[in-house]
Amino acid sequence: MALNTPQITPTKKITVRAIGEELPRGDYQRCPQCDMLFSLPEINSHQSAYCPRCQAKIRDGRDWSLTRLAAMAFTMLLLMPFAWGEPLLHIWLLGIRIDANVMQGIWQMTKQGDAITGSMVFFCVIGAPLILVTSIAYLWFGNRLGMNLRPVLLMLERLKEWVMLDIYLVGIGVASIKVQDYAHIQAGVGLFSFVALVILTTVTLSHLNVEELWERFYPQRPATRRDEKLRVCLGCHFTGYPDQRGRCPRCHIPLRLRRRHSLQKCWAALLASIVLLLPANLLPISIIYLNGGRQEDTILSGIMSLASSNIAVAGIVFIASILVPFTKVIVMFTLLLSIHFKCQQGLRTRILLLRMVTWIGRWSMLDLFVISLTMSLINRDQILAFTMGPAAFYFGAAVILTILAVEWLDSRLLWDAHESGNARFDD
């Protein structure tokens, strides 16, 4: 018995066209964080690309023209004298008006014999932002004059995390709450300039795509075929072959399989920071003279006294001054041990922890910024005066060393310790 099946006739004509040209192939790229070699397709503007294995951002879609970056830099340069030299806060102490600005706080630190601690604050609040705007201006002028731009481009990517104007702005709020127990506070004209400078700096850093600047100024022929001998440069993120001198053909720094002496430098910085954190938390970090009496505060006791007036601000200072430094030390110690013992479990967790400490590390400088600003506000000789204690130097040095330890660690070593050939990683 035959089955009668109805015929289905399409209502619209289906047209099949042959592909007349070869589909576009992607360029081969190595991930600078996990060293995976993959094919990167062509990316349009405002599109980002991520590593298929570790999800690290390979290409950032946010990109401004150099002219727009230069305009932002010149605007920031105009704001800087007002943000640093004009009063941020006014207080009335014992019937006398006192003005506080950024430069005055750094000068008070240096004047009291601790120039190293003052230079830490100076670099993060004044030096690094000033280098940022002058570097962008150098790129703008240098591109037109045919100057060598490689050193500036190499420095810009590392400079971003040292620009800490946003953290200093939080420190202004913390210092205001600490001082309000002794005097009446009012915002100064410099505060508005400083807030504007923070906003412009944040926007500029978020749109400063150094890798795209490398592509514009020093374009290189990408690798179009897969080759395990391809290496990625950690300076400019170019994937290719080393030249005859073993250097990256684009930025001219040595092109090595792994960062040289990464573990040794990381261990040295980490152990030194552990040693410095002990006096930083045991010795007094601030000293207040009130009517001839002397009151010393460690980091913890200062947080407890701050909690009596504002528990939320005390929580912020606790996280930045105690929780973050010790968390960074514990995480980095764990990561280094996992590399030495070739741990194969929990790779995803370790990668996330490394990215976390990379982002939060700079916030530990908050305590030094609060001390710097408070020193310029309260300084009335023996009637009422505020000065920093010996722990300030140890704390600042420990924070900087932990930042350097994270920067010096080559994250690809975590993958080397893991089993080879993993296309995915999980716990």
Rank of each mutant, 00 (worst) to 15 (best):
I185Q: 03
L69C: 15
A175R: 01
S420P: 15
V331E: 03
V174Q: 02
D297H: 04
D114N: 06
F82A: 07
T11V: 07
G190M: 02
I167R: 12
C251R: 00
A307Q: 14
H184K: 03
F318H: 08
D227M: 11
T117P: 05
I316H: 14
E161S: 13
L368D: 01
G105Y: 02
I253A: 03
V174D: 00
A405W: 08
T374W: 02
I8G: 13
R158P: 09
A405H: 03
C236A: 00
L191W: 04
S364C: 04
A49D: 15
I288V: 08
A115K: 02
V357S: 04
A272V: 03
S135M: 03
P52R: 05
I131D: 00
T349R: 14
N4V: 14
M332F: 09
L413M: 10
F38N: 07
V357G: 05
P249C: 06
D416Y: 11
R412E: 00
K13R: 11
G173K: 03
T134P: 05
F341S: 07
A391M: 01
L66E: 15
S176L: 06
S193K: 03
S176E: 04
T201E: 06
M388C: 04
R412V: 00
F123S: 02
L336W: 06
L306E: 00
I131F: 02
D427N: 15
V399K: 00
L306K: 00
D27K: 13
Y50D: 15
L40Q: 10
H90V: 09
W415D: 06
I319A: 07
I322S: 09
S308E: 06
G26D: 13
L353W: 11
I339A: 05
I303Q: 11
I126Q: 04
H184T: 07
L366E: 08
L153D: 00
T201M: 07
D99K: 11
Y289K: 01
V329W: 12
F122G: 02
Q112G: 13
N291G: 13
S321I: 02
G85P: 05
V152K: 01
L213I: 06
E42A: 13
D427V: 15
I378Y: 01
K160G: 07
F194N: 13
S65Q: 07
A70L: 15
L306P: 00
W363E: 00
K160D: 09
D416V: 10
A83T: 04
L169Y: 02
I116N: 08
R245I: 05
I274E: 08
V170N: 02
A269D: 03
A385I: 04
Q344P: 14
A398C: 13
Q220P: 06
M365R: 00
D35G: 08
P129H: 04
S48L: 15
G421C: 10
K229N: 06
S364A: 00
G292H: 04
A405L: 02
P24R: 14
L384N: 01
A268W: 00
F393R: 05
V406A: 07
A183K: 01
D166R: 15
M388F: 03
S135A: 06
C251N: 00
F141G: 04
M388N: 12
S48V: 14
P325V: 03
Y50H: 15
P325Q: 03
M375N: 01
P249W: 06
P279L: 07
L277N: 05
I19E: 12
P242I: 11
L132M: 07
T204S: 11
Y168G: 13
V133N: 02
I319Q: 08
V331Q: 06
L414R: 00
A405T: 05
T9E: 13
R97C: 08
I91D: 04
D416P: 06
A423G: 15
G292T: 06
I98D: 07
L205T: 14
D381R: 02
D60Y: 10
S39T: 12
R231W: 04
